[in-house]
Design a protein around this nucleic acid. Sequence first.
DNA 1: CTTTGATGCACAATCGATTTCGCATAATCA
DNA 2: TGATTATGCGAAATCGATTGTGCATCAAAG
Lengths: 336, 336
Amino acid sequence: MDTPKNASLRTIADVLGLHPSTVSRALRDPKSGRISAKTVERIRQVAEDHGYAPNAWAKSLREKRSMMVGLTMPRLTDTGLAQMFESAQHRALQLGYHTVLVANERETAPDEMLRSLLDGRTDGLIISTSTRDPEMLDRLAATGVQFVLLNRSSGDHPGVFSDDVRGARIATEHLISLGHLRIAHLAGPEHVSTGYLRIEGYRQAMDAAGLDIRHGWIGETNLDIESARSAARTMLSAEDRPTAIFAANDTVALAAMSVARELGIRVPEDLSFVGYNDSEFAELLPIPLTSVHVPIAEMGTAAVDMLVRKLSGEEVFSIVLTPKLVKRQSSTSPGA
Amino acid sequence: MDTPKNASLRTIADVLGLHPSTVSRALRDPKSGRISAKTVERIRQVAEDHGYAPNAWAKSLREKRSMMVGLTMPRLTDTGLAQMFESAQHRALQLGYHTVLVANERETAPDEMLRSLLDGRTDGLIISTSTRDPEMLDRLAATGVQFVLLNRSSGDHPGVFSDDVRGARIATEHLISLGHLRIAHLAGPEHVSTGYLRIEGYRQAMDAAGLDIRHGWIGETNLDIESARSAARTMLSAEDRPTAIFAANDTVALAAMSVARELGIRVPEDLSFVGYNDSEFAELLPIPLTSVHVPIAEMGTAAVDMLVRKLSGEEVFSIVLTPKLVKRQSSTSPGA
DNA sequence: CTTTGATGCACAATCGATTTCGCATAATCA
DNA sequence: TGATTATGCGAAATCGATTGTGCATCAAAG
């Protein structure tokens, strides 16, 4: 039974009475002519027998690059974010990079996630979490850490985003065009770009239509089920409850719909819904959910490409992708 | 502007006219008494000024361990698996380990995922993907690679699982106890333990009740939406269509429900459903989904603990957790 | 028959951090 | 005062892979 764990250049060199450097060259650049064909073949043979694989740490140390990228994400239980990671990870693998992922900001503060990735093990970072302290990114950039942002913008650090203002605007405009006058928004956290930018888009659309945004019509959630249900309950229990809700993502929409059902509010007859992300499950629901489609997979891929370009010294510029509304049955005219 | 990238032990040593080894000792073991208190303080100061952080690669090379674990998962778009990863990752971070994740077996073959993690960079693996070639795990073990399995069993390699046979049995028994006689199963891939073990549990329950399993009542899916819808369509279009379906997971159940709706089959009046995993969304659905609850977070945590114990040389034994049925409105008596 | 030039490989240094030895100087005791 | 023991730090080796330089040997050219 071989024990590949042990095979090093020296192991092989000793077996053949050669020098490690010779073995290295033979394996790395077989047809350079520097090593005779016979020797190359002998080395290749022994290497294979011993299940030789170069030690990644030594290689990283020597070459000053590890072919690993770090990724932070707020959570993975959101299908959209999971897809984003999957596509990023797949692209990275194609390019020879491994991904170190830190996720779940419920349990670990975003700044803590970042810090944990700063042990210099990775060549660069893809940051998809928000931070309470925007200057942290400036400091990071100043100290030479290579990173690109994903899905959430901050300052003018380069990254890949979708146009959240626009997405929120077309979602809201859709509800307006259906004849709704009382439209509320279940928003994400206000300190996160995906949160405040969608609020901004919602506001723009409402203002442009001359519609009132009453107190309590912007409910803040943490984009999880519990906070979404809580915010929805408050919003739907009020006197002047809305006839339509634009939710910051599909999970929030689903959670709010469940609250509506409990309160005896019919969807979509009494209450229309528009979600965000166009999750896989949106079209499977008994009342298929109208949602804003975002090219999630493209974003993950593009972020990796951008980071790799940046690592090679290229100057990179932010990419902003355009969201698109997908109409389904959860949104109709009020009272229909 | 500091450039932490550059600070090494030698940098600091040179500044102070000391030897790198002295600096190392001072920072690593300040109060050993080997270095004078004054010197320690001077070193600490300079280290901080330069933003010194030990080079992780060098450390790994020297200590022959990287404090990184590798993880393979079939996909993350399944909320249950995402939760499993999140809990594992969080536990790993607590113990000082980073996680290198490779996911998405749609794009990358499981064996390929594994291979990509075998560059010796990680101290051990948590394997949650299946493999077409069970002997691969034997070979892995033989070559000294440390790993534990998660969620999917294979041979008698240690791991953390839930009792899939039992879970499938109680799900099926539930439907039987409601009076269903024609019960079908939308299964996962047959070469995967979660696939065939649940089929086994389904069979056991049906046999014990003396119920017939007709041809076409075990539909194979890849646990994704597309294949689930396709299998459901076949199953529900047949003459002797079932009055109840036990699905291999909640997403499959949801997909099948959408097909039922399209075919004009009412849920639960004409068709009862039981899912698996008790996903977050199960209770939010307009017709809340009966599902088999699995302690997913515990599994992720336990797998990390097990791997770490194994890395420290301890002998470890498989853990099998018990699933539990959560009854909701998607399952009722036939014709009710 | 000597010189030039390939050809084929060995040597040694490097990437940083760690650790085992061991050597100074100063303090303590006989 | 000479021997002993702390005390404080330097030297060097090690973990593997890589790469610039240098030294042989043998063949071709003059």
